[in-house]
Design a binder for these strands. Structure first.
Length: 490
RNA sequence: GGGCCGUUAGCUCAGUCGGUAGAGCAUCGGACUUUUAAUCCGAGGGUCGCAGGUUCGAUCCCUGCACGGCCCA
């Protein structure tokens, strides 16, 4: 080799050499596995001395001249393979030595223990099932570069066991939520992701186009308005867990597409939704911690019900030191907010409810480490929630917070079609005034309410954020397999 | 959108008060039949993110850009 050859070229040459010898690693191979690798360990007492067949990726190679050790990894575990010249014969042993880190093989041989008690397969035969043309990341540190980890999650996963485990935890958490609801007779349903009109949240949508129908469509920002139509239709307990799409910024707690759980229960109200939230989030926590306690970024968090309940205005007074009692105009609230340290510019022209919400975001939310329900949100920022019986300016709504993070939103659903129309009209006015997150008016949804919707409690939970909390991750992107990134140059 | 930080070998990271760079792992060659972050001997591998500027000379200083991270909006 007069010229330096890079690793990819080296491996490609090996692949071509194999093909010339009549072997195609990517061809059809029967790879009858007798056991998962985890079974070799768990059932070693029974399997010792027997011939087993396991398959996986080579993640380590230790060559000793006339014998070679390899570590083979499948989805369940890792096991050591021992290849010996006098067992395999010269040709096969040479082929074994030609294997590279990352190659995927199937190995057959007797199971034994080395003198240091390592469970090991004595390789009697092996077959290359897939050639890895690219080298693995560094074996001890794995792949650390955050950008690469997200862009090439497959490498992150194959190199970092803790990342594989993290996403298994995500799956268990989601399964726990489904089980919890199914056991309580909630029906899992599916509603449109492509919608002619979007609604159910304050957010800007992604827009798309249907060619044949020649119409603009929106990716849903929430399933809410469809799920409530199903309550009108007579189902009493429904839920949907699925992706929603919001055309807004990306940060440690926002990804443009994320997984939202929405639950609706007829003949229930927002207080029932608090109880449901406590039970549901508790079950999700149990699924990964086996208890109602966990640690998030150094904070001990206890999910034992009942969670703290405090109204939005009380919370602002208690946690933020801003007393808005008696304040009725947006201007007066804005002055208070600016005095407290909010930027005037962001509050200009906004409603009283908006100012209150911003005060809470800034001064209250970060302090809500233990699970807390903030209740009684202003009606102008809650266009789908029922008003409080004793105060028409507030709604029967709450947001749950854990670890300083908002994890959901819930209310007694507004079922008065006449009030709903007025709310939509107020939203239209807000939109005309420049609020791009205001709801468009959905005539068909009002018509559905006009057929009569029973009193209903509704709950939305941000699944990614809950997973982030329950797995102690500081960044939402850590719990989304393929977070959205700008394309790189390469 | 703003501020701060990062981008050096395939990977993990050092480093150069401005004189074109190092380690470990990985790779290649040699030794080694119970090792396991194997060990020992030897070797190759870099447009130091991209583009300009300052300078005799830039990976290092300056400006812009790209991508990412953290914080703020």
């Amino acid at each position: 080799m007069s010229h330096p050859v890079d690793e990819y070229q080296r491996r490609l040459a090996k692949l071509n050499q194999l093909k010339e010898q009549g072997q195609d690693p990517f061809g059809h191979h029967s790879c009858a596995r007798t056991h998962s690798i985890a079974q070799l360990h768990s059932d070693f007492a029974q399997l010792e001395g027997q011939v087993v067949s396991v398959a996986g990726r080579i993640v380590a190679l230790r060559e000793h001249g006339k014998s070679t050790f390899a570590d083979l990894q499948d989805a369940s575990a890792t096991v050591q393979i021992y290849a010996q010249l006098d067992v395999l014969g010269e040709d096969d042993y040479t082929h074994f030595q030609d294997l590279d880190l990352g190659d995927i093989i199937v190995v057959e041989g007797e199971l034994f223990q080395t003198r240091s008690d390592e469970v090991t397969v004595r390789c009697a035969a092996f077959l290359l099932l897939a050639k890895a043309l690219r080298p693995l990341p560094e074996k001890f540190h794995g792949l650390q570069d955050q950008e690469l980890r997200y862009r090439q999650r497959y490498v992150d996963l194959l190199a970092n066991e803790q990342v594989r485990e993290l996403f298994r935890a995500r799956s268990r958490i989601i399964q726990a939520a489904r089980d919890y609801l199914s056991q309580r007779d909630f029906l899992e349903v599916e509603t449109p992701m492509l919608q002619p009109l979007y609604g159910g949240a304050a957010a800007r949508p992604f827009t798309t186009y249907h060619n044949t129908l020649q119409m603009q469509l929106y990716m849903r920002i929430a399933p809410e308005l469809y799920l409530k139509r199903l309550i009108v239709g007579g189902y009493e307990r429904v839920f949907e867990m699925g992706r929603v799409f919001r055309n807004e910024g990306i940060d440690t707690r926002h990804n443009p597409e994320y997984t939202l759980l929405e639950v609706y229960e007829a003949y229930a109200d927002y207080e029932d939704m608090m109880t449901l939230t406590e039970g549901l989030v508790g079950a999700m926590c149990q699924a990964v911690h086996g208890a109602l306690k966990f640690t998030y970024q150094g904070h001990e968090i206890n999910l034992t019900p009942p969670w703290q309940r405090i109204s939005l205005l009380e919370a602002i007074r208690e946690y933020g030191g801003v007393d808005l009692s008696g304040i009725e105009s947006a201007e007066a609230a804005r002055e208070q907010a600016v005095a407290a340290g909010l930027e005037r510019q962001t509050l200009e022209g906004q409603s009283l409810g908006y100012v209150i919400d911003k005060l809470a975001d800034r001064f209250v939310q970060p302090q809500l480490i233990q699970p807390t329900f903030i209740t009684d949100y202003p009606v102008e920022i809650s266009p789908l929630a029922k008003r409080k019986p004793d105060n028409a300016q507030l709604t029967e709504r709450f947001e749950p917070f854990i670890g300083g993070i908002e994890i959901g939103n819930a209310f007694s659903e507004l079922n008065d079609p006449l009030d709903q129309r007025e709310r939509f009209e107020a939203q239209a006015a807000a939109r005309a005034a420049g609020d791009e997150e205001a709801h468009p008016l959905d005539e068909d949804f009002i018509r559905a309410l006009e057929y009569g919707m029973p009193p209903t409690g509704g709950l939305g939970l941000g699944i990614d954020r809950l997973v982030m909390l329950l797995t102690d991750q500081p960044n939402l992107r850590e719990v989304i397999f393929f977070p959205l990134l700008r394309p790189s140059d390469e």
